[in-house]
Simulated scan of single mutants.
Amino acid sequence: MDSPLRPASTLCRSPDGDADDGNALPSGVAEPTLAEFFAATVTDGAVTGFVCSQLAAVVASGKPVLWVQDRLTQRETGKPFPPGLPQGLKLILVTVNRAVDVVWSMEEGLNCSAVGAVLGEVWGDPAALDFTATKRLAMRAEAHGIPALLIRRAAQPNLSAARQRWRIASLPARLDPDDNRAPGAALWQADLFRARGRAPGQWVAGPGPAGVVLSHHLHMETGHSPALRATG
């Protein structure tokens, strides 16, 4: 049977048995900088689950998350569904017409110390979301110590100043411990294809009490699940 999901701070082993230093893995929590998250397909909700699972520290702080959507994203994927969000998460939802308004709203939110994190959703590859705009977001997030999280759908990973860039896809859920015919906790394929200060890599991820849990092994309680090899 494959090894279970473990917190990113523990020692993980790759499928070939070589040990990897867990300290080299991403932390699993939102960091005070700009991170981009690309959905594998436009309708895949995995990217939203992955991002929200990084907000455990924000929930514990009691501060709200400023969540900004452009109207096309909201029309295609819907508004955030509160019962599906982390318990206790406070949300300020802003809907704007254009990508440039998303960027402006995120910048203004990052100036506010009462906000725990700023999350933006942008559809496609608008000209307003260029390297200069992402550089401003990254610098403002780092200057004020507030995570800036940007969800991208129907988008290409063009030039960006984001410190982390992820590609997220759904995997079959883990088995429910009380009913093996029912879906259990979510699992995601998490591909960190660009990062500053750490090597890129690919992991199986799932929600944990303190953030995203990363592992090099897929644990499905079936004994024959495939494993994902880390590239970093």
Rank of each mutant, 00 (worst) to 15 (best):
M220R: 15
F131N: 06
S225M: 04
F50N: 00
Q202S: 12
L150Y: 06
G184R: 06
E36F: 03
R167Y: 07
Q164T: 11
W123T: 08
H216S: 08
G28M: 07
V212Y: 07
L93E: 10
E36L: 01
T73S: 15
R13T: 08
L214I: 04
D191P: 05
D130C: 09
Q54G: 08
G62Y: 09
D176K: 09
W67F: 09
F193N: 04
P15H: 03
R136V: 09
L137S: 01
L192D: 06
S3I: 11
W188V: 04
V96W: 09
A133F: 04
A169S: 15
E36K: 08
K63R: 13
A190C: 11
T231S: 13
L5W: 04
L93N: 07
A127K: 12
S14W: 07
F193K: 06
R153L: 05
V65C: 05
L137F: 04
A141M: 03
P86Q: 01
A182I: 08
R6V: 12
R71E: 11
C12I: 15
A199R: 14
A133Q: 05
N158E: 15
P226W: 06
D18P: 06
W166K: 00
C52S: 14
S14Q: 13
T41C: 07
W123F: 12
V59P: 05
G45P: 10
V115H: 10
W188P: 00
L150F: 11
T231L: 08
N180F: 13
R13Q: 11
Q54P: 07
W67Y: 10
T77L: 13
A24K: 13
W188G: 00
I92V: 12
A190Q: 05
L171K: 07
T222K: 12
P177K: 04
G223E: 01
W166N: 02
L150E: 00
V122T: 11
Q164K: 12
E121F: 12
V42T: 15
P32W: 01
R13N: 05
S61Q: 11
F193G: 00
G62W: 06
L110N: 01
H224F: 13
D191S: 07
E107M: 11
V59D: 01
G78L: 11
L149M: 05
L119E: 02
A195K: 00
L66M: 10
F81T: 08
G62Q: 08
V47Y: 03
L218S: 13
G145R: 06
F38N: 03
L72E: 10
K63G: 03
A8T: 06
A60R: 15
A46Q: 02
A114G: 09
V29I: 14
A56S: 14
R181V: 09
W166S: 02
G62N: 07
H217V: 01
L214G: 05
